[in-house]
Simulated scan of single mutants.
Amino acid sequence: NDSHWSLMCREEGTWFLAGIGDFSSTCLRPRAFSPLQTHSPWISHVTRGAYLEEQLAWDWGPDGEETETQTCPPHTEHGACGLRPEAAQKGMLWPWLAEVHVAGDQVCTGILVAPGWVLAATHCVLRLGSTTVPHIEVYLGRAGASPLPHGRQVSRLVISIRLPRHLGLGPPLALLELSSRVEPSPSALPICLHPGGVPPGASCWVLGWKDPQDRVPIVTAVSILTPRLCHCLYQGILPPGTFCVLYAEGQEDRCEVTSAPPLLCQTEGGSWVLMGMAVRGSQELFAAIGPEEAWISQTVAEAHFLPSSGSPYWPATGSDLCPPDMAGASSSPKAAALILLLLTPLIQD
């Protein structure tokens, strides 16, 4: 009667510890157990090595009734990455969208690129001039600031931050290593990555939130500009490895930019791919994933890049493709917008 009983469950040949017996349990009454799932953030913080699984097929609600089962998603032609999002009570549930909470006072967007890794903007996760790694928590499976029912939310601590080697150039992208893997599920699934160019026939979107408090995800349709237009509009100030987008009229202010929202494209085959992350303080400039393919692949072996397609984002160094009347046009947003409208047919070239 004094022993602490453990509740074990077997699912598809794998044994899981599901709960620890309550002190009120006796041999003469049904046993009550404390579920481990509610303690997963604490267990992960203390052990950093425990294997935690939030997406078991069994799941019981507060009144004991069995709730909706969670099943692993099917594979696409590119593997288990880039599946379309599903509807949730508070909006759309984007399975790769992560909330990156930095030291408790800042929330940025991140993207799950592998079961144990999230990609985020460097300026969001590292303080300027600081040499210490801040306390960072990552949440997946959210369609807003409040948790969703049925235990879909997943949380992990960040145990290390990896940067590419070209530190002198101020790398815009950082890889966050999670304290334990996030097993694939409909609410937490890595996205596919694109090595360069624009996928033929793809539709592209900026994914973020308008209100940093509610953090309900919204998408804004954009067009990726040709290298020539991007180079001309940002003559002399365009950071290397970046590309430009054009928003639909009146849509520029839909997403809050300090959270560094990602740019996604949906390919003709239906798979979603990550193209870039917003440059600090900008709505139109994005740091491209393609130039960092070698670094990402070496750091994260499970990151899945699609076959290369399309043209490079930027022209060759030193090329002068700009008409004289476009020089410095980026200094005036209205003038730049007018030029883009006049040159809209070129965007499709």
Rank of each mutant, 00 (worst) to 15 (best):
M8T: 14
M8C: 12
H39T: 13
H39Q: 11
S40R: 02
P41C: 12
S44K: 00
S44Y: 00
Y51V: 15
Q55H: 14
Q55F: 06
L56I: 14
G61E: 11
H75S: 15
E77A: 08
A80T: 09
G82K: 01
R84Y: 05
K90D: 03
L93H: 01
V100W: 00
V100F: 01
A114S: 04
P115L: 02
T132L: 07
V138S: 00
Q153F: 04
S155Q: 04
S155K: 01
L157G: 04
I161E: 06
R162I: 15
L167R: 15
E177Q: 10
E183G: 04
S185T: 05
P186M: 07
P186W: 05
W209E: 05
R215K: 12
V216A: 04
V222A: 02
S223T: 15
T226F: 11
C230I: 10
H231Y: 08
G236T: 11
P239I: 14
T242V: 11
E249R: 14
G250M: 08
T258L: 07
S259P: 04
E268Y: 08
S271I: 05
M277W: 04
S282Q: 09
S297A: 13
L306F: 10
S308H: 11
P312L: 08
G318S: 07
L340G: 01
L340D: 02
L346A: 14
